[in-house]
Design a protein around this nucleic acid. Structure first.
Length: 592
DNA sequence: GCCGTTTTCGGCCCGACTGTTTTCAGTCG
């Protein structure tokens, strides 16, 4: 049993990178640590442990001898001397100063060196006392920005759940598209990549006349503050703290800029390296012969006369580099470029909302839902679903008005007669979201569960159990003959609550062995199992059920959020049982 | 610190904006 898990190792490498930055170290060394952290995160917990044990960690691209040694030391002993020395050498207040917009490692070092500022509190005092403006390289404006940054840092630093960011983006994007000067407009960044949380919004516009577009953008009522404004870029802070950048490019550049600002950073770096290897330089400006970058003028950037290879859209851009189109959700620098190489041709056809035929795990007024059985079924029919599963809470979830055996039997009876009545074209499956009790037993006896079409087993209590106890608890539920799938596996609530400690790999392997499905809970607060787990798990044979965990009719459409995460997890329709037609799902359930 | 059909040294993705400078450094994405 290791002392520090994968997340802890990655965190330590990131911290080293940050501390080295504040020490003014070589930027490439810093990048090596940051890159190493991402590589560690992308490895499986099991593979990581095996490589550490076997001493083959340095065979992984991005991890060399120095990082391998440090990872190994931390993993084996729970401590890392190098990091501990760095923590002593760098005042802890400097790290939190990085969160102030406009302050980076260099300026923080200058403030520390010249004025002895080593905390946010001292920084604020110095700014209020007007001493920062006197420092070389600083002025009135930077001092004012620092003060504003400290005051707003709580709201500024926050990330936002994808669904909320998407709502904020929708209105601005629709407005941009209506402007007569705008030929194309898209939201890029982590929103387009469907990351579960979004730090800021990035809009891209194709236009020949940027000025009026910028003018419209910065004067929107939702804009609280304008932080930058030029002819190719404007940055604003929206009410609520979300930063929203707008970039404006000529139409011919749109595809390149769209790709660039969609990212991720890792993906872009890798794609540029591929371009360079093919003799091209790729940027948001276009794709140029590599030598055109430094012409006789000696100026950086593409020469005025240099012509980019044209690309009408991203598909053409990828094609120039010998690649199939890579969906934005996959652009995380986790092997998508190799898979898209024409020779490989191994990019999956990702699942789409239109593939979905139904969903399990939905609630009604019988437990803590807000709509009746009939209303939920009608809403499912309106979405075009062939079937919908009802899985209300079980009796131990008293706080959620869980059903006891009697009420469950009544609900099953109601569902059977609803199906028989032919009132709805949507078939209803009778299930339960059955509590996994603290000792791993289920909340209902076998004969009760046997009368249902399916069982979602979920943890709703004793979250504080240690990792081993929690893992055994869920493993015991998986062994239960009537369990069809596991609900919200770690119980996380995005930006609110970490998931409970659990050995995901053991659970995934056991689920595969027993033919138990794991839910992709599409509730915008949950979005788990996390997308980083799905690709490997599905390759090993795990099946997914995209479930909205709907508590009202509108909640059924949350499956769209789940599809975004499933796509990030490289899932195809075949790996998602809720894409199966009704007949196939019935057969599949009966065979279990 | 990492890496290698430009290989074991000398590179490392690339550009815009701001504020401060008077040609650029720092920050950000």
């Amino acid at each position: 049993m290791s002392k520090v898990n994968k997340a802890g190792l990655a965190e330590a490498l990131t911290e080293i990178g940050t501390l080295l930055e504040l020490q003014g170290e070589n930027p490439f060394k810093i990048r090596a640590y940051q890159g190493g952290a991402r590589v560690v995160e992308a490895l499986g917990e099991e593979e990581l442990a095996q490589r550490i044990a076997a001493g083959t960690l340095d065979e992984v691209k991005g991890i060399g001898g120095a990082l391998a040694q440090k990872i190994t030391e931390l993993h084996r002993t729970g401590r890392l001397g190098f990091l501990e020395q760095l923590r002593v050498a760098v005042a802890p207040g400097l790290v939190e100063m990085l969160a102030v917009p406009g302050l980076g490692p260099k300026k923080i070092r200058a403030l520390h060196g010249a004025l002895g500022i080593d905390s946010l509190a001292r920084l604020q005092q110095a700014a209020e006392a007007d001493t920062i403006a006197t420092l070389a390289g600083f002025g009135e404006k930077s001092q004012g920005k620092i003060l504003a940054g400290i005051r707003h840092r709580v709201g500024y630093g926050r990330r936002h759940r994808w669904a909320e960011a998407a709502r904020a983006a929708e209105a601005l994007l629709a407005g941009l598209r209506k402007l007569p000067q705008v030929q194309q407009a898209e939201a890029c960044g982590s929103l387009r990549r469907r990351l579960e949380t979004v730090g800021d919004l990035d809009f891209l516009v194709a236009t020949e006349v940027p000025e009026p577009v910028v003018e419209w953008y910065v004067s929107q009522p939702s804009v609280a503050e304008i932080t930058a404004r030029g002819t190719t870029k404007a940055s604003v802070r929206l009410e609520g703290g979300l930063q929203a950048d707008l970039r404006l490019v000529p139409p011919a550049q749109f595809a390149f800029a769209l790709h660039h600002f969609t990212g991720s950073k890792d993906h872009n770096i890798q794609l540029r390296q591929r371009a360079l290897a093919q003799g091209h330089s790729l940027s948001e400006w276009g794709l140029f012969p590599a030598e055109a970058k430094h012409g006789p003028s000696g100026e950086d950037g593409p020469e005025a006369g240099a012509r980019s290879v044209p690309a009408a859209d991203e598909t053409e851009l990828f094609c120039h580099l010998g690649l199939d189109f890579i969906p934005p959700e996959l652009r995380e620098g986790l092997g998508e470029i190799a898979a898209a190489a024409a020779a490989a041709g191994t990019l999956p056809r990702l699942v789409e909302v239109a593939d979905l035929r139904g969903a399990f795990h939905n609630h009604t007024t019988a437990s803590d839902g807000h709509n009746t059985l009939e209303e939920m079924v009608a809403a499912a029919g309106a979405l075009g679903w062939e079937y919908v599963g009802i899985a209300d809470h079980s009796k131990s979830s008293v706080q959620a008005c869980g059903l006891d055996e009697l009420r469950l039997a009544e609900q099953v009876e109601a569902i059977r007669s609803l199906n028989a009545s032919g009132r709805f074209g949507t078939h209803v499956f009778a299930g339960t979201e059955c509590d996994i009790l603290p000792d791993g037993r289920l909340d209902f006896a076998d004969d009760v569960l046997a009368a249902l079409d399916y069982v979602v087993a979920s943890v709703h209590s004793a979250f504080q159990q240690d990792r081993e106890t929690m893992t055994r608890r869920i493993l015991r539920a998986i062994e239960h003959p009537h369990v069809t799938m596991l609900g919200h596996l770690t119980g996380r609530l995005l930006l609110e609550r970490e998931g409970y400690a659990v050995d995901l790999e053991r659970i995934i392997d056991a689920a595969i062995a027993r033919g138990v499905v794991i839910e992709l809970n599409a509730n915008p607060y949950r979005l788990e199992l996390d997308w980083r787990q799905w690709r490997k798990a599905a390759e090993k044979g795990l099946l997914c059920s995209i479930n909205p965990d709907a508590h009202r009719t509108e909640g059924l459409a949350h499956v769209g959020y789940g599809v975004g995460i499933a796509r990030k997890g490289w899932l195809t329709a075949e790996q998602v049982i809720t894409t199966y037609p009704l007949a196939r799902v019935k057969k599949w359930l009966a065979a279990r």
